[in-house]
Each structure stands twice: as C-alpha cells, then as structure tokens.
Design a protein around this nucleic acid. Structure first.
Lengths: 334, 334
DNA sequence: TTGAAAGCGCTAACAT
DNA sequence: ATGTTAGCGCTTTCAA
C-alpha cells in the first residue's frame, strides 16, 4: 500500500477500489492517522485559512460580524486567522507580512482601508480581498456594507417629523469611511428637511462610549441646545444619554437620541435606545461567502458589491418635541 | 549565492559575513522576496500559531482576554487561530482535528474543559495546553484564573455588612466550573455570615442578559423578596436591574445588586453597577506567556498555576437595607 | 486501480 | 563563511 493510495482514499475516495478504501480507512482508524496539514498546504498551495482584519475586538459590532464570518467559513472547512488592530495602525505591518508570506488564501477587511507595511500593501499579495462593513473603493475589491448614508438621512427625517428643529451629530472615528458616509447622510437629511448648518451641531470622537460622554458635556454647556441627536454608533449614544441624565436632562422629553448599530446593550439601557439595527451576522456570512467565491474564481459580477438594509428600531429615547414656550402643548408625531 | 546563505541571512544574520548579509538584503529588498511560511513550518515543525478556544466571542469578557493574549503572542511573533464555539459544543470537533493535524504549536482554553471529537481529545495532540479563566484540573495543564470563589464570598460579606438578611444568587451557565466556583464562594459567604439556606434564593441560566431578566421575573413574583443579589456575571446583573426597575423597584433602595466581571458597559448603566473587576487583559497576557514558556520548555514549576485577584468596584447598585417597618430609620453601613 | 517518483520551498547537517 | 544535499509529509503526474 503506497502513500499515494492512502492520499487518494482520503482526498478522493472514488478513485480507488472499495476494498482498498476499506482497508486504508481501517488502518487509519486504528493508527489514529491524521494528515499533516502543513505538508498538505505546501503541496497544494492552499492554506485553507482566511485572514480577518478588525479595527477592534471589544466592539460588539465586530464580534457579531465575526460570528457570521465564522459560521460561513467553518462550513467550507476554512479557518480564521484573526488580525486585531486594537485601534493601533502600527499593528498592521505584521498582518501585511502574513498575507505576503501566503499564510492565508484570502482576506476580509473590516477596516475601510488596505493595511500597509512601509512600501508594501496587502494588495501586493495578490490574494483576493473583500471589504466588509466599511467600503474600500478600489478595483477588484467587493464591498459588503450597509446603507449607512440612507439610514443617517432617515434618522434626521424621523427626528424632524417628531418636531425637532435643532440637531446634534455625534461622530465616529474621524476619517473612517463609515463616519464619512453617516455624516453625509445626516447632512442630506438636514438639507432635505429644509434646515441649514445653523441648525446643526457636530461633536467629534471615535466609536466609543466616552465620545458620547464628551459630546454630552459640550451639550450641557450650550444655551440653545439641540433636541434631536443622532449618534454614529450605539456606544456613544449610550454614553451621551447616561451623562445628560445625570444632570436631570430627561430623555426623550428634553432631548431625543438615535443610535446606530443595534448592539444588544442598546436594549438594556434606560430608556431603551432607538437605533438602526445592522444585519451584522448576515454581513459576516455574505462577506465570507463572496470571499470564498473569489478564492474559487466563482465570482459572478452581479454579486460584486452589496448594500444591506438596516432597520429602524423605534424604542424609548426618541419622542416628540416639547416646546418650552408651550409646555402644555405636546405636538403629536406626524 | 546559495539558498542556504539567504536562509541564514534571514534567520541568523550573525552566521554570515557583513558583506554577504548586505548583498542578500539588498537583493531581498529589490525583489520583494518573502519566505514561504508554509515551507518554513514544514521544515522547522513549528507553525508559530496558537489556537484559542473561546465559548463565545460576543461576550466582552472573552474579547478583552483575547486582547491580552494577542498582545503577548504578537510580540513573540506568534499568530492566533480563533476557535469560537459560539456556545455550541458540536463545534469543538473541528478544532480538535486542527490540533491533531498540528496546525498550531499550543492551545489556550477558555472553556473549562478539554474539547473532544468522538473518541479523540485535544490532549491526544500532545500539544501544550493552558487553561485560562476557567480551571481544568488535569495533570500538566496550568490554570490561569481569578479568585472567583473568594470574590463571591466577599460579595455576600459586603451585602451582609450593609444589613441585608435575605440573598439572591443569579447563576451562570450550569455545570461551568466558573459557575460552580462562584456559587461555592457565595455559599461559603452565606455560612460565614451565619445565614442558612432559608435565607437564599437561586435563579439559574447561562451567562447572558436574559438570565437576569428571568431572574427578575421570578423575583417579582415573590412575596418575601431578597434584598441582596449577587449575579455571577455583569450581563445578568444588568438584565435583572433593568427588569425590576421597569416595575418601579428602586435600586439600591429596595434591592442591592452586585455583578461580576467589570465589563465596560457596567459603568454606563443606571445606576452604575457595583461589581468585581477581573484583570482580563492581564489574564490573557499571563496565559499566553505561560503557554509560550511551555512551548519552549522553559516552564518553571512555580509558575504553573496562577490565581489573579479581582477588585470590588463599589458603585451605585448597592446600599444599606431600608427596613420596611422602620422606613425612616436608615441603617448606616458598618 | 495502484505504485513510483518528483517536488512544493525551505532549513540544517555536513562538507568544503 | 559558504555551498551541497537531504529531507520535512504530502499530492500528483506518469507509468505499469
């Protein structure tokens, strides 16, 4: 019995006689033989691993996307090598090298940009790349994202319909494509509802709780405060609400807040957070699926870029404006 | 110039002449050569990868530990292959095979048990294993855990000192070693403070928000309710508080709650959660460090098992008991 | 249907 | 200090 026959039995059982097959399988079972995957990788030039680069792991948004990715990849026998940047760009270098040294068959990027190491970029690896969550506008890179812009626009519409006339925007990480999209949508909404830049306040900071806290502190200093706030992520919305309520500002009576993401916490805040739910698990599945197709050259052009819808969850942090001058007159939501 | 020389320049520069070194490096730079890591792995029999098995990724506790692991491993040039069980034990099999086929040099287990695939266990791989977060009592497996039992015991003491006389315990995942330890500590505390099983109520469920919600619903049905609650994790503490407050139960005036973990979100609840902060990042670093030592046979016996301390964060969900009969008489905390 | 043999790209022992 | 050579364990022609 040659090693070649064993190999055939294990990889393509139809190529051998039934009897040989049984003999080999019995021996395999008894000896507990498991092929050395490194040797397989070297020989076949496929690693059966995918690299996933995430800006941060402690953000539940990424964790949830990763679940989807994992479900899809595991099903196809692929493994995940996780590249956690932990919000530090200097960590990219290591993963660029990892791609360049062909330790993976494909790359999923949650970053919104292509990681680089000095002069070399992940693109130089020639490996298939799919951008998820945050778009990368380059040839040959499919984007699997949600309708950030549309949702942000819808947030303003929703607040305007509730009677709000002055708006606040709590940003995400500056320069991030997601932030850019959401702010653009917010501005479109402002314009569409007939408001101007005078009716808008913007507070900046990364996608974390404390950004909402700082925004709240700036908010509290204002004399003529906005009453409708859109936060580019749930965490900063939660930070904002927590901070203003500590100063006896009522939500939503004094200020309405809409978040973005639909993380699980957002359903356990007081009041529960009105927000847009992203289909995070699906995002992960679809992204992984597209990458696998790319790896197997089975990509249909119409699948290239996908924009998944988000859902507005109307909960307790938004409500009609109570005008100060006529406190008794509560405008009904149109 | 032979391939062997190039190999030496790249792996052990001191073994070649300075001039040769420079020549090779120049050529490497110009050609953009990067060694094929799979071939290196096959030849050296080291994969430079570590497998981390986590019960679930969306739990911020695991995400935080993973950060520590990542920091430590990255520094030593090791990569992480993530094995997310997503709370489904049938997913273990794949990772057992991965270990058996030697795709990694070592294994970090956050599970509290050794994953199995039918008759075969990860131990059969012969790879070094370190248990983190949840202990595994087997020869040759170092445990890096926190003082679960001591903390739970301390929680009861703390509540008793505040005047509480009837206690509630919200469990974690049944059968989990962490849950067992925390409940044991809780019971020790009850006994040490001179209380009996009649003074204790226990509600069961996994380590998730909704366990706290169900516990709250059972709590609300009771006539003689406990006033001091210890939850085996922050998420269920938060779920509990959210649910009882919806029924106008005041925290901490009517019921005090202590959590466990110290997740970031626990600082953004209303009121902010009293809880034990686990040194999660450190747990990850230490666990990874011990594993690396095991891999390099550099383990000193005294480092084998480590129990890190937790810190009680006294925040707003705990307070002195207000006895119903003498509502005006507020006992001071001793 | 099976076996023999080449070779994936690298490193390490040995030879020079 | 460098080159030659023999594998690491597998898969895949090619030949039988």
């Amino acid at each position: 019995m040659s090693t070649a026959t064993v190999s055939r039995v294990l990889s393509d059982p139809d190529k051998v006689r039934q009897k040989t097959h049984d003999l080999v399988m019995e021996a395999v079972r008894r000896s507990g033989y498991i092929p050395n995957s490194t040797a397989q990788k070297l020989r076949t030039r496929r690693t059966m691993n995918v690299l996933v680069i995430a800006p941060r792991l402690t953000n539940p948004v990424f964790a949830e996307i990763l679940r989807g990715v994992d479900d899809e990849l595991t099903q196809s026998g692929y493994g995940i090598i996780i590249g956690n940047l932990d919000n530090r760009r200097e960590r990219e270098a290591r993963y660029v090298d990892l791609a360049l040294s062909r330790q993976v068959d494909g790359i999923l990027l949650l970053t919104g940009y292509i990681p680089e190491n000095g002069a070399r970029s992940m693109r130089d690896s020639g490996l298939p790349i799919v951008a998820m969550c945050a778009a990368i506008h380059e040839d040959g890179i499919p984007n699997i994202v949600v309708q950030d812009r549309e949702a942000a626009r819808q947030a303003v519409e929703y607040l305007a319909r509730l009677g709000h006339r002055k708006f606040g925007y709590i940003s995400g990480t500056l320069g991030s494509i997601i932030e850019v999209e959401r702010f653009a949508g917010f501005q479109e909404g402002i314009a569409a509802a007939g408001f101007s830049q005078d009716d808008v306040v913007r507070w900046e900071g990364p996608f974390v709780f404390s950004t909402g806290v700082s925004a709240a502190e700036a908010f509290l200093q204002m004399k003529d405060r906005p009453t409708g706030i859109f936060a580019a992520c749930d965490e900063s919305a939660i930070g904002f609400i927590k901070r203003v309520r500590a100063e006896r500002i009522r939500v939503p009576q004094d200020v309405s807040v809409i978040g973005f993401d639909g993380i699980e916490y957002a359903d356990y805040t007081e009041p529960t957070l009105t927000t847009f739910r992203q289909p995070l698990h699906e995002l992960g599945c679809v992204g992984a699926d597209v990458l696998l197709k790319l790896i197997h050259n089975a990509m249909k052009p119409e699948d290239w870029s996908i924009r998944l819808p988000v859902t507005l969850l109307e909960r307790e942090t938004t409500g009609p404006v109570l005008h100060k001058d006529y406190k008794s007159l509560r405008r009904s939501a149109v």
